[in-house]
Design a protein around this nucleic acid. Structure first.
Ligand SMILES: [Zn+2]
Ligand SMILES: [Zn+2]
Ligand SMILES: [Zn+2]
Ligand SMILES: [Zn+2]
Lengths: 420, 420
DNA sequence: TAAATAGGTCACTAGGTCAC
DNA sequence: GTGACCTAGTGACCTATTTA
């Protein structure tokens, strides 16, 4: 996965002090956060636009930006990131990509499929965030990418994940971090992050104040609240991955994830995530997320949960994109109700080779994209097997790409030459 | 069920080294317990307050906290936990929840039902701990939740459990572990566990001072001693589930479990637990808890024990919450008194489907809450059952009930993508 | 057999270092 | 003062064990 420094736009080295940042901004923040008084005032009325090139020119604005994007000493966190976190980041990443300039490709490539999908989704897809729409709306990007385009994600993901989640583990690396690569020439990104900050600004500084909801108006559950387990109320800071989502939702544009239509209706499908989610959710104890699957996960992929899944009353419906299943999906153990709908199961297809989530390619997105290319065991990209996703589940989108794994691993490697 | 890390407050991953802890604290303890000398001294005079955000900032205080909450290598144990253990944890969990912020919902939601119930309970409910009262009192929370609201627990629980305990086993999973979810704001637990170390302190090094008892003053049997089997006096460490109760009693705030009115009066009813307890207690040898039911179990659910149950003279009364039956309930053997009070029994209704205690939902509480929705196996998601979460709680989360079993299984969730 | 944990593995980050 | 690089931790995830 690739992330950019939320402060300057350079490829991020990791998630530092609460935000994806480059080494420079990380160090800068680490150094200056302690003694902010020491930095001189901005000579530009505090309106400097920070980018890769000028980030060192105005400390005041750089620090300000850092805070704006949510950096704080208390937001720091150690350790490995959960797969859910990674996936979320990936989604977000996709979303950003789409909003910028990749969308066009996606749209062009998969418009047809998207339409098909939306149709399958019972029209929910279209309703939810505009997946399938020709004009990408912020937030709709992810949906379009993941859920909308049949060819956008590796079929293997769906297939393998849905049926045998454990397959996902076959390829261990699921990292979100970006492989550091040489930044592309400067110009293009400056514009980008300046707006990204906008999104994040909310999460910001000060403290992760409760932050006004950008979406839901009144109900406690914000637009992305479904990502949070019902029980959890509010998390103060993005200390944990879980928290991250909470905070990050403000940072990221609305991530509209379409999921397979659930009985409840109104959901759209989100194949890519669905795949991962499926792995985790469907057989909730799947090795990929297995025991570690966040409680909220169940609420993430209702469609995956199956027909039995119900929309979270009063909350999900409001949310255009993501839906979650109020019905806990049980792992393995038999006695419980069948949480996984047949539909899902149907979608899944046995696969011969182990699925690799690793994206050896430069960016996960690229990987996903590449995945669209045919090759899969059997399914041609263009043709969506009717049988697979009766209700249009992601399935349709299924992609193929058995060999194009999604690597969420943060290979921080030193600069990796990269192209797009 | 949901538990929080006793050290930092993050959602717990399980019961590690003698306490509920998150993965981080578990690893930390495992790593540092061996070479405590290696950790640097606290720079804050050893008074750091450990929470999710700052837990990595002071190893000395983190370790201290670990020890304070009862962690020790000797306290570790492998294997599945008994259902009694789980139930106890659930109770505690409920209690915590109530003390924090869930009580309001509960109260609001089920005030009516509670009233009804209290009526059934012979009015004892209202008297005992304020169940049904608009203002939740700490400790009364659990009572209100479990015992107060008729609609708060899945009817199925009562039905199935009371009538045919073995039904409980139908759905095997009864786990206590929490699926990781967003922790509530920190702070709440710090005060509490600081006094818990008592029993394990033995194992600790540095310091865990003997730790003053918070409850029992002089007499051997402390206020919560009923949790301990009569015969066993002191157990060195919470190695076994039974031992856990003993130790845990100090860790947990007063667990106020309302039980069906007993002749003694003053008890409230606690359907949810009652159900479970009934399964175990009524036919004490029920498969659910059967052979594993700790001796102490009999003292846990007096109400369940039935009219015959008497309050432990002199002790229970003092204890605001838990009541126990001085009269040992016999397992298996049929001769025991009718443990289920008529009132409760009346509630019970034959049920077609096997009862599942599993809560596929994120938290048992949530499950219970959701369960409140009356039986409807088929609840439409969109509709928020009046009883559920009128105030839009996650409850809404309410997941669905009939199918919303109580899952005490430990689904160790991981970072949950969450929004806030 | 299933559920649950101690330990181990290793992805990741806060800090520190030091050539610029 | 910067930021590429290192290192000591940290903690998510996995697996071998253990217990109900
Ligand atoms: Zn930067
Ligand atoms: Zn400036
Ligand atoms: Zn912890
Ligand atoms: Zn300290």
């Amino acid at each position: 996965m690739n992330q950019q420094c939320k402060v300057c736009g350079e490829p991020a080295a990791g998630f530092h002090f609460g935000a994806f940042t480059c080494e420079g901004c990380k160090s800068f923040f680490g150094r200056t956060n302690n003694n902010q008084s020491a930095i001189s005032e901005c000579k530009n009325n505090g309106e400097c636009v920070i980018n890769k090139k000028n980030r060192t020119s105005c400390k005041a604005c750089r620090l300000k930006k850092c805070i704006m994007v949510g950096m704080s000493k208390s937001s720091s966190r150690y350790g490995r990131r959960s797969n859910w976190f990674k996936i979320h980041c990936l989604m977000d990443d996709m979303n950003n990509q789409n909003n910028l300039n990749n969308i066009s490709n996606i749209t062009n490539l998969n418009l047809n499929n998207m339409s098909a999908l939306s149709g399958l989704s019972g029209g929910a897809a279209a309703a939810a965030g505009g997946a399938g729409a020709a004009t990408p709306t912020p937030g709709a990007g992810a949906a379009a990418f993941f859920g909308g385009g049949a060819g956008l994600y590796p079929t293997s993901l769906l297939q393998g994940h849905f049926l045998s989640p454990e397959r996902l583990l076959a390829s261990p690396t699921l990292s979100w971090q970006v492989k550091k690569r040489k930044a592309s020439a400067g110009g293009d990104d400056s514009g980008r992050h300046s707006r990204s900050s906008a999104e994040d600004s909310a999460g910001s500084s000060a403290g992760d104040a409760p932050a006004a909801d950008d979406d839901s108006g009144s109900r406690p559950a914000s637009a992305l609240s479904f990502l949070r387990p019902p029980s959890s109320q509010q998390s103060p800071s993005p200390f944990s991955d879980k928290d991250y989502y909470q905070t990050h939702r403000r940072l990221s544009a609305t991530v509209t994830l379409a999921l397979p239509a659930s009985p409840v209706g109104g959901q759209t499908s989100s194949p890519a995530l669905a795949a991962a989610a499926a792995a985790a959710a469907a057989p909730f104890a799947s090795p990929l997320f297995g025991p570690y699957a966040p409680a909220s996960a169940r609420f993430l992929y209702p469609g995956l949960a199956g027909a039995a899944a119900a929309v979270r009353p009063g909350v999900a419906p409001a949310q255009p994109g993501l839906l979650y299943s109020p019905v806990p999906v049980r792992a393995g153990a038999g006695g419980d109700l069948l949480l996984c709908s047949p539909a899902l199961a149907g979608v899944a297809v046995e696969q011969d080779q182990p699925i690799d989530l690793s994206v050896k390619s430069p960016s996960a997105i690229t990987a996903l994209r590449c995945a669209s290319s045919p090759g899969s065991p059997s399914r041609s990209p263009g043709a969506t097997p009717p049988g697979l996703c009766p209700d249009d589940r992601p399935c349709g989108d299924a992609v193929k790409a058995a060999t194009c794994p999604l690597d969420l691993t943060n290979k921080r490697g030193a600069e990796v030459p990269q192209s797009g």
